[in-house]
């Protein structure tokens, strides 16, 4: 079903439909994440992918129009590239350890430690939270900074200051150029 939604995304040309289908696709993948025990991830995907990102895409579509132009030439070269890359990936997949086996190498590096010891060391039942905020606190701080930097970029590109000071009295919300870029890491 997920694959069908993905291929539908590639085929459709009305971008409005594409964005809506992308929301459905996100929700489907959230369901798949739940099935694979990643409840935290599913939660995030449902809230972010199916909610916020759909709204952002729609808001951008209002600005750029929702018709996609018909491709001028047949996409032969991309198709070849994709098939070759896919074959290479499939070849690599053959060597991957079997799905769902508890003896896979990924499960025996630090994961054991997290699962067995986080009870004593952190005392938080949700291991994902413990790893996110405590063991890998540096990572998460980096992520927060990345997200913040992204919004600084959006503000610089689209904020009221980005059109210069000509807007005059309209910029009464206190938003001006140097302020929008302030505090960038």
């Amino acid at each position: 079903m997920l694959a069908a939604a993905g291929i539908g995304l590639a085929k459709l040309r009305n971008l409005f439909t594409v964005v809506m289908l992308a929301g459905v696709y996100s929700l489907l993948s959230a369901g798949l994440f739940t099935v694979m025990d990643a409840v935290d991830v599913a939660f995030t995907e449902a809230a972010v992918g199916a909610g916020i990102s759909t709204v952002l895409f729609l808001a951008a579509l209002v600005l750029v129009g929702h018709r996609e132009k018909k491709p001028v030439r047949a996409p032969v070269l991309p198709l070849v590239v994709v098939i070759v890359t896919g074959a290479a990936l499939a070849w690599g997949m053959i060597d991957l350890p079997p799905f769902g086996d508890p003896d896979n190498p990924v499960h025996h590096h630090v994961a054991d430690h997290y699962l067995q010891e986080s009870g004593h060391e952190i005392g938080v039942p949700n291991v994902v939270t413990a790893v996110l905020a405590s063991y890998r606190g540096y990572d998460t701080m980096g992520e927060a900074t990345v997200v913040f930097t992204a919004v600084v970029g959006v503000l610089l590109l689209l904020g009221r200051g980005a059109q210069g000071r000509r807007t005059g009295p309209e910029a009464g919300t206190g938003l001006s150029e140097p302020e929008a870029g302030e505090g960038g890491p």
């Binding site: 916020i52 709204v55 952002l56 808001a59 060391e121 952190i122 005392g123 938080v124 939270t129 413990a130 905020a133 405590s134 606190g137 998460t140 701080m141 927060a144 997200v147 913040f148 992204a150 919004v151 959006v154 503000l155 689209l158 904020g159």
Partner: peptide, 26 residues
């Protein structure tokens, strides 16, 4: 640990809330 996790998560909440709302507003 409890306190620290709660506080940094609060920082994440504030950032993510601010970022998403700002992007939408803009």
């Amino acid at each position: 640990q409890h306190l620290g996790i709660l506080l940094v998560e609060a920082g994440v909440v504030i950032t993510v809330f601010g970022v998403m709302t700002t992007a939408f507003y803009v």
